[in-house]
Write a protein that binds this DNA or RNA. Structure first.
Lengths: 120, 120
DNA sequence: AGAAATACCTTGTATTGCAATATATGTTTA
DNA sequence: TAAACATATATTGCAATACAAGGTATTTCT
């Protein structure tokens, strides 16, 4: 049981959320994720994921010149990608609810996690 | 991206939490998880997981007669299992914080659980 | 005896995070 | 000029794990 395993299938949604917020390029995403609290991600994780998401038409990419270094491939969400992000957020909310139900021994009928505000 | 993928590495912790709460047998766990809000789980998921956790000495098992059907293998947490559960709960808390940070575009500086200092 | 429900286990497959490695571009420094 | 370094993308192979499919054994009910 490791953090790596717990991330499976969740990282996609995180990337979609970041890309929706602002056009980003792959190499940038590791730092971006770190700023959100994650440990930095391997490029061997991020690039294959981006290529897969592009193949699935969730994102599009455009090459742009960099101020320093080779060209960057910037990613944007497609309409399909936005839809996928919405579904991810719903599934993520359900997962949080259910796991917290288990951990704190509550029944699954009450406690809706959907519409609460995030407190700091 | 599916719910299946999002469960990877999380189901172990859920089973540990359920077993800690009350001695249970494998076949019972599918229903148990459903009562907590999950869709029911395949036995092909649960049994290998229980065997693995026993091999790792996180749980112990004892066979008991059933009122109807073959004997049931009841599982209990070991001390090591309780420790593992605690670590899971911490990792799960961190994961929730970080993913919610990403989804709602907050910075990761105010960690809810970790209290760990982030270097660099 | 036969059928159905209960209960456990094994095998093979698909998915995915990641280390290791490769390749290419631009800047800085000796 | 060349060497060194940082930036940036991509590929390969491995490990972990949820799960469908299939199998075995026990008890109860007709």
């Amino acid at each position: 049981m490791s953090t790596t395993q717990m991330l499976k299938g969740i990282l996609d949604g995180c990337l979609l959320a970041i890309i929706k917020n602002k056009e980003v390029y792959g190499y940038e995403l590791a730092d971006k994720l770190e700023s959100y609290g994650f440990h930095s991600f391997s490029e061997g994780t991020i690039y294959p994921l981006l290529l897969r998401m592009q193949k699935e038409e969730l994102v599009t990419s455009t090459l742009k010149k960099s101020t320093a270094g080779p060209r960057r491939k910037y990613y944007s969400l497609t309409a399909k990608g936005e839809k996928e992000l919405e579904m991810f957020i719903k599934r993520w909310g359900d997962l949080q609810t259910n796991v917290n139900n288990v951990v704190y021994h509550e029944s699954g009928t009450n406690l809706r996690k959907g519409d609460e505000t995030i407190e700091k």
